[in-house]
Amino acid sequence: MNWLVNNGDLIGQLVVAHLLIAIPPIILSLVISVPIGWLANRYAWSRGTLLTGFGLLYAIPSLPLFIILPLIIGTGLRDSINLVVALTLYGLALMVRTTADGLASVDPDVRQSASGVGFSGRSQFFRVELPLAGPVLLAGIRVVAVSTISLTTVGAVIGISSLGSLFTDGFQRGIGAEILTGIVLTIILALGVDGLLVLLGRILMPWVAVNSGRVSRRERRRARLAVVA
């Protein structure tokens, strides 16, 4: 407890550093997965090739990737960009398939009707197919967000500051409270971002709750009262 009180500033800094590394890959994997997911559904050859290719990214062990990436993109070994790029690749490994599946799941009747009333190819994609794939994309990006926030800690091993630094430092100096703080805060951060994404989904996709037949609290109460009566 004492350790926690004495290191409030450090913890605050690490939380910010952690988020600064974790958030770009979450956004990037969503944004980049959209054109790739579109392309995957576009041609007969592209689906298998792209989905398998991006799926395999996940098989690359993280530590070797941290060492190879600087050589490829010309950054320094301790540059946090390496970590951002690596996490984006892992994010894409999950997200490309999800986005492709989400876009493919849009009801063909709705597509037909959209093109029938005069959506152009582009407006149909952005105004009909992408929004309707939204719930699937949201489900995917929640997994990516949680996994990215947790994977960010690995960077501490190669000296990139994050909440993971609390594990490495805590182990070296034998401070149990520090290690525990790192773990708990990482989990809280993951839960927090996940909750935020759910909230964002509700705001951006108000039709989802309605269409899944969720009843309002008032209606539920009315139903209960009806049963009682």
Binding site: D109, G116, F119
Partner: peptide, 20 residues
């Protein structure tokens, strides 16, 4: 696309956009 926008089109099951 321009042609379709000046012709009304109604289909079975309404074909309404569920997110609008």
């Amino acid at each position: 696309v321009a042609l379709r926008r000046r012709i009304g089109y109604v289909m079975q099951n309404s074909g309404l956009l569920p997110h609008l």
